[in-house]
C-alpha cells in the first residue's frame, strides 16, 4: 500500500494527481484465478467537504492513477485521501497543497 500525490494550487483551483499502490485484481471476475481485490471507494476531502468521490471496480488499472481538480483551495491547505477495497482494507493519507 501507499499513496503518492502531487497537489498544486493555481489561483483558486487545486489540481491533484494520485498514484495509489494497489493490485486492483479482478481475479475470477476477469476470467483469471483467485479472489478479486480492488478499491471500490476512494474519496478526497478538503476542509470537511468531499471534493472527489470515486467508485472504482476491478476494471481500473493496477496501481490506480487519478487526476482531478477542485475549486476553493489555497496553498498550505490539507486534503485527506481515503480508500477502501472490497476486502475491507483501507488507507488514509493527508496531503498538503503546494
Amino acid at each position: 500500500m501507499g499513496i503518492k500525490a502531487i497537489a498544486k494550487v493555481k489561483h483558486d483551483v487545486a489540481t491533484v494527481k494520485l498514484l495509489v499502490r494497489h493490485p486492483m485484481s479482478s481475479g475470477k471476475l476477469g476470467g483469471g484465478k483467485g479472489e478479486p481485490k480492488f478499491i471500490n471507494h476512494l474519496t478526497v476531502k478538503h476542509g470537511g467537504r468531499v471534493v472527489y468521490d470515486m467508485y472504482p471496480t476491478s476494471a481500473v488499472s493496477k496501481n490506480p492513477y487519478i487526476k482531478f481538480a477542485f475549486k476553493g483551495a489555497k496553498k498550505g491547505d490539507v486534503i485527506k485521501v481515503w480508500w477502501q477495497d472490497n476486502t475491507g482494507a483501507s488507507e488514509k493519507k493527508d496531503i498538503k497543497l503546494k
Binding site: L29, G30, R49, V51, M54, Y55, T57, F70, G72
Partner: peptide, 29 residues
C-alpha cells in the same frame, strides 16, 4: 466497457466545487 467480463468500470459522484473532469487508467480485455 462493452467487451469486459464485468463492463462496469468506474463511477463518480459529483460534488460541489469539484470540476467534473477526471482522468484515470482502465483495463480493456
Amino acid at each position: 466497457i462493452d467487451n469486459n467480463p464485468r463492463p462496469l468500470a468506474a463511477s463518480w459522484e459529483l460534488t460541489e466545487g469539484t470540476i467534473p473532469k477526471f482522468s484515470t487508467r482502465i483495463k480493456m480485455r
